[in-house]
Computed example of a mutant assay.
Amino acid sequence: MAGKHALNIVKMKKMKQDGIPLAMITAYDYPSAQLAEEAEADMLLVGDSLGNVVLGYDSTIPVTLDDMVYHTRSVARGAQNTFIVADMPFMTYHGSIDETLRNVRRLMQEGHAQAVKMEGGAEIAMAVQAIVQAGVPVLGHIGLTPQSVNQIGGYRVQGKDAKDARRLLEDAKALERAGAFGVVLELVTEEVATAITKELSIPTIGIGAGRGCDGQVLVYHDVLKYTPEYREKRFVKTYADIGTQIRKGISEYVKEVKGRAFPAQEHVFAAEEGVLDNLYGKGKVETR
């Protein structure tokens, strides 16, 4: 968007201090990124949720680093004045530090992201610290972590009891100490998310984590019902139903093609006089 200046991690921390909420939305390609930037979203997340909503997988686990680089690069072309965060996909930051940094390098140099997002808490703090020390901003992600869905027993709300609340707080603080510039809290009880937000000096961004976070993030396809079979989610508010409009539009197109209503006169181009004589020979009649 002309005249817009991308946020940076210093400005985001200042927004937390000033009580100004951060509005983040996912994007997976050039047009969605361009539209989100024009709508003045603060940040774009190229989430590995693209596995579910774009690539047709049942989870985020099959998403590869090549997938993330490809889609991040497309988003970067569409939103050149918006802060872009790219997900580190499954098992790309649990090996050696050297391997992790190579994977981060690809998202930054080839994908043109401004930051990376990583799922996990204290157990990934060393990797987060190494990435930050290498000069790359890191956004943490705790609570429901989709890459670990098989381990945590499904898509369950986190922070329902005191023990789990304490674990989440400790994970958030570990990420802050490691240098993360913010933390996504997914499917966390509102009370716990609010308490974590107050304890941290870095912004929290909620998704299904209530009203006390410093910002919110939602999936592009959920906000717009951009899917053939939309499944309602309690923590999501949809603001438009483009899925229905797309289906209706394509149906009308197919109907008009079948009925020879499209293309109509206004959609065709006329040749200059005499062209058919030169094509078929003067006096000849085209036969089919």
Rank of each mutant, 00 (worst) to 15 (best):
M126C: 11
A127C: 08
V128T: 07
A130D: 00
I131V: 15
I131L: 07
V132F: 09
V132W: 01
V132Q: 09
Q133A: 14
A134G: 06
G135W: 06
G135I: 04
V136Y: 12
V138H: 09
G140L: 07
H141Q: 11
I142V: 13
T145C: 13
P146F: 10
V149D: 12
V149S: 14
V149I: 15
N150W: 10
N150S: 11
I152P: 02
G153M: 04
G153Q: 00
G153L: 02
G154T: 06
G154R: 04
Y155K: 11
Y155M: 13
R156A: 15
R156V: 15
R156Q: 15
V157R: 14
V157Q: 14
Q158E: 12
Q158M: 14
Q158T: 05
G159R: 09
G159H: 10
G159Y: 07
K160F: 03
K160G: 15
K160L: 11
K160A: 11
D161M: 04
D161H: 11
D161Y: 06
D164W: 03
R166N: 15
R167C: 04
L168R: 10
L168H: 07
L168S: 07
L169E: 14
L169P: 06
E170A: 12
D171E: 14
D171I: 10
D171F: 03
A172H: 01
K173P: 00
A174Y: 02
L175E: 14
L175R: 04
A178Y: 06
G179S: 11
G179A: 05
A180Y: 00
F181M: 13
G182H: 00
G182I: 05
V184L: 11
L185R: 08
E186M: 03
E186K: 06
V188R: 09
V188P: 05
T189D: 12
T189A: 09
T189W: 09
E191H: 07
E191F: 02
E191M: 05
V192Q: 11
A193F: 02
T194Q: 13
T194L: 04
A195P: 00
I196N: 08
T197V: 00
T197W: 05
K198C: 05
E199L: 03
S201R: 12
S201C: 04
I202V: 15
T204S: 10
T204R: 02
I205D: 07
I205W: 00
G206E: 06
G206V: 06
I207M: 14
G208H: 02
A209N: 03
G212S: 08
G212I: 02
G212F: 04
C213D: 04
D214K: 08
G215H: 01
G215P: 00
G215I: 08
G215A: 09
L218V: 06
L218F: 14
L218H: 08
V219Y: 00
V219N: 03
Y220L: 13
H221W: 01
